[in-house]
Computed example of a mutant assay.
Amino acid sequence: MSTAPEMPSSTVMLMIAAGRQLQRELESDLSAIGLSLRQLGALGHIAGNPELSYSDLARRAGITTQSMRATILMLQEQGAVRSNLSGQGRRANLELTETGEQLLNEARRVIALRDRAFAERLGAEEEKVLSAVLRRAAPGPADTARRG
């Protein structure tokens, strides 16, 4: 008798299981360069819009403002982000340092390698189809803004 759990037959459950596995793999890859997935997200958002507040960043990441502050503090300690505080109660005006830019570029390289490994696992045609389906299924920026 096998004690291994059966594969879920639900598409949603299969997507969740695959997503969790890919997340673990990417987290492991990113940890090798000193980043977490949460830190990568923060770096990417700051690079795209340095005017975002801690609350804005937290909403985009789906975490509390306090957790985002801790994430930004870790990035500041790594020398990846600096804050140009303009006074009490004002936006932090976060920006990437040269180190932050290098980390973000290295993370992009890591993601590209993970993408290639995933495409090899599926095959090029299946990866293209899955990518197209996920683009339609994933929430877009407008959907995310409505939730936030």
Rank of each mutant, 00 (worst) to 15 (best):
M1L: 13
A70S: 12
T11M: 13
N84E: 10
E106Y: 03
E51V: 09
S86M: 06
E95G: 08
L75N: 03
I16P: 01
A117M: 10
A112L: 10
I63M: 12
E98L: 14
R135L: 11
L113W: 05
G62Q: 07
I16N: 06
E25I: 10
G48H: 09
L134K: 02
S31A: 14
V129D: 08
R121E: 07
I46P: 02
E27P: 03
R20C: 11
G19C: 09
P141D: 08
A137F: 10
M1D: 12
D29H: 10
E126R: 13
G148Y: 00
Q76E: 14
E98H: 14
I72A: 00
S9K: 14
E120N: 08
A58D: 04
N105H: 12
M15W: 11
G44R: 11
E95Q: 13
E51A: 15
L122N: 04
I111N: 01
V12H: 14
A138F: 07
L30Y: 02
L22M: 12
A18V: 14
L30F: 09
L130E: 03
L35M: 05
A137E: 07
R121G: 01
L75F: 04
E125Y: 09
G148E: 06
A18I: 10
P141L: 05
E106A: 15
M13S: 14
I72D: 00
A124Y: 06
A32G: 06
M1S: 14
I111V: 12
P141E: 09
Q66T: 10
G62F: 03
Q88L: 10
E51Y: 03
E125T: 14
R91P: 07
L52N: 05
A107D: 01
V129E: 14
G148P: 00
R82A: 09
M74K: 15
E27R: 12
A17L: 15
R91G: 14
A132W: 02
R135Q: 11
T71S: 08
R108W: 02
E6A: 15
R121M: 08
I16A: 14
S28H: 13
S10E: 11
L96G: 02
N84M: 08
P50Q: 06
E98S: 15
L134C: 12
V129K: 15
S55K: 14
E95M: 11
M68A: 07
Q66F: 11
T144P: 00
R90M: 12
L73D: 09
V110K: 04
R91I: 06
A4W: 04
E106F: 01
T11D: 11
L85T: 07
L75Q: 04
R82L: 08
S55E: 15
Q66E: 08
R116C: 00
G89P: 03
G100W: 06
R136M: 12
R109T: 13
A61R: 09
A42E: 00
A124W: 07
I72G: 00
T11C: 05
H45Q: 13
G140K: 08
L85P: 06
M68I: 03
Y54P: 01
S55A: 15
V81H: 01
V12M: 13
R146F: 04
A70G: 05
V12T: 13
